[in-house]
């Protein structure tokens, strides 16, 4: 099964009939246009390439414009590939709608997490704070980073400050709460990586 490219719109909640409140993320999923069909013969593997989101032709390089023209579509902002076994019925220029996810009970959502810049270990690795008073000078500093002459080095993978966020992440097995085929919306339970209006990839869970 193939997935979709979507845009995270925001969060709200819905109620079950039993009165239980479910936090949901609203994602505008598709419609995506198939821009290329790859097969074993021409590319060495079978896949389809799809695009989503309008982009002005003047901001699109000429080779890309030609690529989109072949598929008979306006330039698209995001393009992604999904591996697919041979024998599928997708053709170049086809539109893929959210209905492809209608039967999926669980989906994986991939997005770019919110960028937090160069962050310290408290925010980045959930380490603890030092004492603020009694002469303490390591309020948010990290503690010891290792032992002594032996081993004489810092262990690989030691949690340290650095870039946090703005990184691709996948949240797996999110329950699909509702699919609105008219408005191209999918509601998944819980949160999804990234900020509002961020691009996400949605595919059925394995």
């Amino acid at each position: 099964m193939i997935g979709l490219i979507g845009k995270k719109l925001g969060m709200t909640r819905t109620f079950e009939e039993s009165g239980r409140s479910i936090p949901v993320t609203v994602i505008q999923a598709g419609p995506c246009v198939i821009t290329q069909v790859k097969d074993e013969h021409s590319d060495g593997y079978s896949a389809i390439q799809m695009g989503f989101g309008a982009k002005k032709p003047k901001n699109t390089p000429m080779p890309m414009q030609g690529h989109f023209r072949k598929a008979g579509t306006d330039p698209l902002r995001t393009v992604i590939e999904f591996r697919l076994d041979e024998g599928h019925e997708y053709k170049m220029g086809d539109t893929v709608k959210v209905s492809v996810l209608a039967e999926a009970a669980l989906v994986d959502v991939t997005g770019t997490t919110k960028g937090r810049g160069f962050s310290g270990t408290i925010k980045r690795h959930n380490q603890h704070r030092g004492p603020a008073t009694h002469g303490s000078k390591n309020v948010r500093a990290m503690g010891s980073i290792g032992m002594h002459t032996f081993p004489g080095r810092v262990m690989p993978g030691k949690a340290m400050p650095g870039q946090y966020g703005n990184k691709q992440e996948t949240k797996k097995n999110l329950t699909v709460v509702a699919v609105d085929e008219e408005k191209n919306l999918i509601l998944v339970k819980g949160s999804v990586p990234g900020h509002k209006n961020g691009i996400v990839f949605i595919r059925p869970s394995r």
């Binding site: 719109l9 925001g10 969060m11 709200t12 609203v26 505008q28 408005k183 919306l185």
Partner: peptide, 9 residues
């Protein structure tokens, strides 16, 4: 009004 706001109200 955006879609999420509509869903909320």
């Amino acid at each position: 009004m955006n879609i999420v706001e509509q869903m909320r109200t």
